[in-house]
Design a binder for these strands. Structure first.
Lengths: 110, 110
DNA sequence: CTATTGCGCAACCAAATAGTTGCATATATA
DNA sequence: TATATATGCAACTATTTGGTTGCGCAATAG
């Protein structure tokens, strides 16, 4: 079974759950109430999220609170970094290009 | 058929393709040579990437070059932003906490 | 102690997905 | 013009996935 963070955030319901519990830990029932899915469906999503360590549980009596392991989200950020370099470069090139045009215009080359 | 950028980057082969063509546009055959999959499999991945506008094609004779639409990657970055706020806050709280301990130590409360 | 509640888990099912095979089409080459 | 090459596309298959149903277990309430 493939189980990584990218596969975890592929599902829109799972992204919604992540956004929801980012603010505060919640029980499966409480989470399920925010969507039109069953508690079991949410439970399965939570299992996926737990398996890739995006979420951690805290038992409190018979309730289980699920909390976002927010530092894990940085892995996505880390992966994005390689592209961030490239898109910043593009902006630099655009800047240089604009500067060049500007310069040429000043010299009456337009 | 669900087709968004999060689903597109869920597949590891697709992520590898993205990283590969981020540097320079490539043809399906050239891409396939970098992996141990068939050209057709790569072609299907490219279709998925094209459908969610992560990739654009340029025909050149009988070759088709696939190029990463890098600005599209910012959508992931944008989604991450909501969590970035939270994790920065956590760091702030940690800083405050450390400052507090430091202060207490100065006052001989340790 | 019994009933209820919150939950996980396994079995099952329909839909989606990644990959393969076998074409068709367009461009290039001999 | 005949052949080779680069590619897309449709059909088929095995696997995965998201969801449902039903069960069992532990904690709480009556």
């Amino acid at each position: 079974m493939r189980r990584d963070i990218f596969q975890a955030i592929a599902d829109p319901t799972r992204r919604a759950i992540i956004a929801l519990i980012a603010l505060q830990a919640m029980t499966p029932n409480a989470i399920a109430e925010h969507f039109d899915t069953s508690r079991q469906a949410v439970s399965k999503h939570l299992r996926v999220l737990t398996e890739c360590e995006l979420v951690k549980q805290t038992q409190q009596g018979r309730e289980i609170y699920y909390e976002l392991e927010i530092s894990k989200m940085k892995e996505i950020d880390k992966w994005l970094n390689q592209f961030r370099k490239i898109w910043e470069e593009r902006f630099d090139n655009l800047d240089k290009y604009l500067a060049k045009i500007q310069k040429e215009r000043k010299h009456g080359k337009s």
